[in-house]
Simulated scan of single mutants.
Amino acid sequence: MSDITWVIVANGERARVFQTQGLALDLQEMEDLVNTAGRGTGLTDKEAEVLDRGEQKEKLEAKFSKRVADYLEQGRLHQKYHRLIIAAEAKFLGMVRADLSEETQRLIFEGVSDDFSELDVVEIQKRLRKER
Rank of each mutant, 00 (worst) to 15 (best):
K46V: 15
R16E: 03
E118T: 15
Q28T: 06
L100H: 05
A90Y: 04
G54K: 06
F18K: 03
T5R: 02
L23G: 01
S2Q: 04
E58G: 12
E103W: 12
V50F: 14
L60W: 01
A88K: 00
K130W: 11
L51R: 03
F92R: 05
I4Q: 06
V17K: 05
R83G: 08
M30Q: 02
R76D: 14
L60Q: 03
E123A: 12
L100V: 08
V96G: 00
M1G: 15
V68Q: 07
R14D: 01
A87H: 00
D120L: 06
L107Y: 02
R39T: 03
M95W: 14
E103L: 15
R53T: 02
V68L: 10
V122P: 00
E55H: 04
F18H: 06
D32W: 00
F18G: 02
W6F: 15
A88L: 01
K80Q: 12
A10I: 06
Q56G: 09
E73I: 12
L77T: 06
E110Q: 09
L43I: 10
G54I: 12
E110G: 05
Y81L: 06
A62Y: 01
I85V: 12
Q125A: 09
L77P: 04
T44G: 04
V121S: 04
E29K: 03
L43M: 07
A88Y: 00
A98H: 11
E131N: 07
G22I: 06
N11D: 15
L84V: 02
R76V: 11
R67Y: 13
W6I: 14
D115K: 13
G111F: 04
